[in-house]
Nucleic acid binder design. Structure first.
Lengths: 340, 340
DNA sequence: GCGCAAACTTGTCGCGCGTAAAAAATTTAT
DNA sequence: ATAAATTTTTTACGCGCGACAAGTTTGCGC
């Protein structure tokens, strides 16, 4: 096989062309003549040479790196979005690197620092929300082309892509009102994510529009253990008689899952048939919402679309330079199942 | 505030000490005199200088990078393990980078390539399993100190850390036999993960030991959509009369969740009380197993311990050089809940 | 105060590649 | 066949830092 290739110099020598041309090839394979490209790719098979990514990125004005940051990767929603985003980046020829803030402000700041030193072409960032260090994020956005997704933080970055929380809530509130008694809204008192506030507002607005009295139950709890917070909160709310009526709309599916567990523990049968005591609905289209017992009625994010839109918006901005800040909110789809 | 710092040279000048000393500080803050350290750290606050990570890693013999690779990040088990591993790495002063193979052999190979070019100090890798390219992995392990976790691939890498599937299965089989009729084993015919085979073997062994006839139901399906595979497979198995007895042990919790959905759809009440038709148990201690209805009886991984052991084993090997290959299997804890 | 080790400084080299400009070779159009 | 356009080569420099060697200062125990 011949001696091992140590650097681009040696590789170029082995192929029989000059190093700058090889360098050009790695920057963009289309930019060299087809015959040259073929020769390089043939040699690439023969010797398993790969350019040193550190040396590559050191002098490049703009790298092909893309950072993907989510607030909590163990949350299936973010895991799923992150998965699709990664795939889209790779397809577009970028090198994605995935980060999770694990719910920590400090970690989010550190990630921002790390990211800056990586000179990324762009960043897809879902902020922690309430716990985000605004100043740090604003400063970061000034230096790195950043697309904010999931939850909006003012008008930072080049654009925002997320779900249309008002539409989400309106659709399901409407559905619940049409098919039975109007829902009570079940949420966390101090949610990590600002989307929760929008959903509460949208619920109140929709209820008033439909001529019903809104009724919000906010349960205490901090952090990302939503199911347990909902389970405990639900028990307390039931005992305190806060759950009026027989229909509960949860601010998200994870809360709904925890609430359903509490219902089970209290012997309350969940479902939309006559023999059931209570109706439950969620929002998000959690990967496991199909598999709860009974299967959960919810409004599902259009995961593919959100990710696709976020990725393409970023890539366009990278190609064509910064335009005016814009916000895209994607509608969800009502998924009618058995809980409501 | 003074002019912006562009590189270590300028930073050192601003602090009033020499560049090599600053370099030494970043390599190991303890290695410089306390007074010098204080001066550097004071300046670090003033100017927000960070060394260029590409230039840093280019010439270092051994970086502080650690790669973490999991087969499928949208699986809550891996999301949770990855989360803890990342934290441990940061605590130990390493810079973790997270990768998910997304269930794809090609992607796993690419990650291995990327990782090699990152010159990581070490790698924590959970292989795809059946779909892993053995040769590529073996070759990788020869070049990079790799700790394999979750599912063992021969004796590759410096060590293996995982769960004790035999103990897992024995414990729960024993429990099920003692508290009711012996279980049928429910699994995927072609599981992605080799642990599944061990669990089947362990089930058969345990059943024979306890004097019962083992009975395995293997359902068809490929990929990582375990719940749906289990749901469909369960329906078919019920219809074909393959589910003998009233107790089902699932190869993992995600299958159990899907199977419970099927039971719900068939009107079969799951639980361990007299009014229930069927008992179900799983394995893994899935984050949502507490919240199924009824809550799922399972054998839980000791997530913290597995991650801790994996991390410390790698770090020890990095400090003290390669020792003989060793394998650690950590026991799980029976979590008795309401399904069995 | 002495002596000595640890910590620091100065200076210099090189890593592997990006990048730029000018010269040479090749392809394409006329 | 010749001119024009494109691609490739040559040459040269620099990025920001790690690593090393040799000399200088500092801190510390006696």
């Amino acid at each position: 096989m011949g001696a091992k290739i140590r650097n681009m110099e040696e590789f170029a020598a082995a192929v029989g062309i000059s190093r700058p041309t090889v360098s050009k090839y790695f920057h963009d394979p289309e930019s060299v003549r087809p015959t040259t490209r073929a020769r390089i790719e043939a040699a690439l098979e023969k010797y398993d040479y790969r350019p040193n990514i550190f040396a590559m990125n050191q002098n490049r004005k703009l790298t092909k790196n893309v950072g993907i940051v989510v607030p909590y990767l163990a949350d299936p929603f973010f895991a799923e979005i992150a998965r699709i985003l990664e795939t889209r980046c790779i397809e577009a020829g970028y090198r994605p690197t995935l980060f999770s803030s694990h719910g920590s402000t400090e970690l989010e700041c550190e990630i921002l620092d790390t990211l800056r030193s990586m000179k990324p072409a762009g960043v897809l960032l879902a902020p922690l929300g309430r716990a985000t260090d605004r100043k740090a994020l604003e400063n970061f956005c000034r230096h790195v082309p950043t697309l904010i997704f999931d939850s909006s933080v003012e008008e930072f970055g080049i654009a925002f892509v997320g779900s249309d929380n008002f539409q989400f809530t309106r659709v399901i509130t409407d559905y619940l009102c049409r098919t039975g008694s109007p829902p009570v809204f079940f949420e966390m008192k101090t949610p990590a994510n600002p989307n929760a506030h929008r959903r509460r507002q949208a619920y109140i607005q929709a209820m008033e529009q439909f001529g019903h009295e809104p009724h919000v139950v906010s349960v205490p709890g901090e952090g990302w253990a939503f199911e347990e917070i909902a389970r405990r909160g639900a028990h307390e709310a039931f005992e305190a008689g806060q759950i009026t009526g027989d229909t509960i709309l949860c601010s998200n599916d994870r809360l709904a899952i925890g609430l359903m567990t509490a219902c089970y523990e209290r012997g309350l049968r969940v479902g939309r048939t006559a023999d059931c005591a209570i109706r439950v609905a969620g929002m998000d289209g959690h990967p496991l919402s199909r598999f709860t017992c009974p299967p959960l009625t919810t409004v599902a994010h259009d995961y593919e679309n959100v990710a696709q839109k976020a990725a393409t918006t970023l890539f366009e901005a990278l190609r064509e330079g910064p335009g005016p800040w814009k916000s895209t909110r994607i509608e969800g789809k009502l998924v009618m199942r058995d809980t409501a």
